[in-house]
Design a binder for these strands. Structure first.
Length: 270
DNA sequence: ATGACGTCCTGCCTGC
DNA sequence: TGCAGGCAGGACGTCA
């Protein structure tokens, strides 16, 4: 996904910047950001956890957290990027130096954008607070185990806690625990090494497949060309309450935990 | 240190 | 059929 953004916007300059939702900018204000970032060149695009990190020259980093509905869209040339605002939930538009517009769409306006003029991304609090990349080759089971000693006691909350592993949300936490046959409310302290290993393996498998499928799109996620992800057809538990478990036919249940829905199979995951 | 809860915002779903 | 109200969701701040 970040590769799409790199392809369409990499090396381009930000000629002009518009928004109709300044509240998305949490650091600094939009007007300061616009003044400083205008004319900058996009020199790199990366992802850390759920955050999209755009590297700019002169030295700065532009961070986007999509939450549920934020995503980039490539928009054709238009008279003014301002014309796109309010259309298809677009709240931020960059005019690139190739004449295209790059839009940030966010139906629910939950996304968060930060701009840091620095050459050291490690000094950015938002990034510094993130845990390990779950799919990193050097993130092995022993590393995983060592992390599982602090944080939320319930395994599902722990998997979703970005300070330990970065990038897992409600959908994939549910799917991982179903695959690993672990009750979402189990305490991390009570898990056997074998159970921890099952979770670790399921995490790698589920996330690798989700990346290959270009995301899930349960709601309205879209890629930069406005295409939905394909992982939704693989979901076994998420929003499947009442539907039979794919292993044992027991109806999938839904339970609220900490204000969040958890989907699970009472028989398989106990 | 952990957890519960409210907040943000919109579209969809439910119920009358 | 139409409308009002409820609800979900990631991270953060506040209060136990």
């Amino acid at each position: 996904m970040v590769g799409d953004l790199r392809t369409r916007a990499g090396k381009r300059k930000l000629v002009e910047i518009w928004t109709d939702e300044e509240k998305l900018f949490h650091h600094p204000s939009f007007s300061v950001f616009r003044e400083k970032a205008k004319g900058s060149q996009i020199t790199g695009v990366k992802r850390r956890g759920k955050i999209i990190v755009m590297e700019l020259k002169p030295s700065a980093f532009l961070l986007f957290h999509p939450k549920m509905t934020g995503h980039f869209l490539i928009l054709g040339p238009a008279a003014s990027g301002r014309d796109y605002l309010g259309d298809r939930s677009i709240h931020l538009v960059f005019l690139l130096d190739n004449g295209y517009h790059l839009g940030w769409s966010d139906q629910r306006k939950f996304s968060r954008i930060e701009y840091w003029p620095t050459d050291d991304p490690n000094g950015i609090p938002w990034l510094a607070g993130l845990g390990r990349e779950p799919l990193a080759d050097d993130f092995g089971f022993s590393d995983f185990r060592k992390l599982m000693v602090r944080g939320p006691s319930r395994i599902k909350s722990w998997l979703m806690d970005q300070r330990f592993i970065a990038g897992i949300g409600n959908i994939y936490a549910s799917e991982i625990l179903w695959r690993a046959k672990i009750d979402p409310e189990r305490s991390i302290k009570e898990l056997s090494v074998g159970e921890q290993r099952r979770i670790f393996i399921a995490m790698k498998e589920i996330l690798r497949q989700a990346v290959a499928d270009r995301g899930t799109s349960v709601a309205e996620f879209r890629d930069i060309e406005d295409r939905p992800g394909n992982y939704a057809v693989r979901l076994k538990t998420y929003r499947k309450n009442g539907r039979p478990c794919r292993r044992c036919q027991e109806p999938i249940r839904r339970k609220m935990t900490g204000g969040r829905s958890t989907y699970y199979c009472l028989l398989c995951q106990s």
